[in-house]
């Protein structure tokens, strides 16, 4: 026996599984819409709630949803946080994330908020107060992903 230590041993344990995730009816259509610079919402046939991101069923009244509509990519910032300490694999901090109510919907869309200087915390927090109007800025390269919108800009940008 060469090992005489009684300290606890440590084993490295690793999980590795590759998945391929199916986005289904509602999100596939939504993501393809983004690729074509279209912001699509769905409206419950039964209770008229409008969801963005869209969904193919309404969890509230528990009925299927079949009505779709295109929305102007404009809305109101409800709240935001400015991230100064990000995480591995995430965007480069600082960046701002907002909860945006797109006009005419009953849900919030989460997205980056841009067009604000984040180097001064207090000034940036003031600029990103709830109630501020925002408009989507489309990414140049679009791949049917949520990041096909680069961010929502506080100063209304030209579409």
């Amino acid at each position: 026996m060469s090992e005489t230590s009684t300290a606890a041993l440590i084993h490295d344990v690793r999980w590795e599984i590759d998945y391929r995730v199916r986005l289904g009816r509602a999100w596939s259509r939504f993501m393809r819409g983004l690729r074509d610079r279209k912001l699509l919402a769905s409206t419950c046939d039964h209770c008229d709630r409008t969801y963005l991101p869209p969904q193919s069923y309404c969890e509230a009244c528990y009925e299927p949803i079949t009505r779709w509509q295109e929305c102007e990519p404009v809305g109101t910032l409800r709240t935001a946080t400015i991230v100064y300490q990000g995480f591995d694999g995430g965007p480069q901090a600082p960046y701002a994330v907002g909860a945006i109510e797109i006009d005419g919907t009953h849900s919030l869309l989460m997205h980056f908020v841009g067009g604000v200087d984040l180097s001064d915390v207090d000034a940036a927090r003031k600029a990103l107060r709830g109630g501020v109007r925002v408009r989507a800025v489309w990414a140049d390269e679009r791949t049917a992903a949520i990041t096909d919108i680069a961010h929502f800009a506080v100063a209304p940008a030209q579409p």
């Binding site: 986005l23 009816r25 509602a26 069923y57 528990y62």
Partner: peptide, 18 residues
């Protein structure tokens, strides 16, 4: 052959049971 997302499958099955 399914084109449904996981939650859409669950909704379909649970609403059928209801």
């Amino acid at each position: 052959d399914t084109d449904l997302q996981l939650d859409e499958l669950v909704f379909e099955c649970c609403s059928a049971a209801l």
